[in-house]
Amino acid sequence: MNKSLILKVKNLNVELGKEKIIEDLNFEVQKGEILIILGPNGAGKSVLLRTLLGLHPFQGQIQWKKNIHIGYVPEEFTIPSGLPLSVKEFFQFKNIDLPEISRALQWVEIKSSPGFLEKRIGTLSTGQLRRIIIAWALADNPDVLLLDEPMLGIDIRGRVTIYDHLVKLWQEQGQTIILVSHEIREVVKKADKVLALNKRKLFFGSPRKIITFQNLVKIYGGEISI
């Protein structure tokens, strides 16, 4: 594995409950790259992320650079409203201190007042919880970020500013980012590579080459505007 290679995926096959979810997938991610995974619903994007994280059994090869520290934003994350768990305690699961919590919250446009930190996390709105879980993934400075539809439920203004913060953070710290998203417009500008997936690899390369009208029709199978 060369120095700047963070992840190498070779002949990856994933089967869940006898259904083939991912077939014979190959790709590589270099240090500091932003890779965007596109594909219709049911294409296996979330399963791919979870497989990369070691959460599903697979055949083939997934090779991460040694001692890599990964932050993950899952597609689904809810907290029962009755659970007495404060925002601060949720961050403390990561053994981080208050300044680090405030810094992470700033990245997702949340002012960390003492009142907010003491709030029950189960009473937050969907969008706020989503911001918290992004901040949580960022809080302990991961080398690689895996984000699965991170902006689900976040308002438009929030999306733009959070993406801006993510990009700024990425420029400062040079994380590698792997992102599953449907929002072609906002994110593709910043991507180094795009992986279009529908169980098999459809396209893999720079966004300029991939994100064309004809390709999008092939990926999503219908009329779509860029």
Partner: peptide, 9 residues
């Protein structure tokens, strides 16, 4: 809360 998140940690 999330077994996946815990495993990633």
């Amino acid at each position: 809360l999330s077994e996946n998140l815990a495993k990633v940690e």
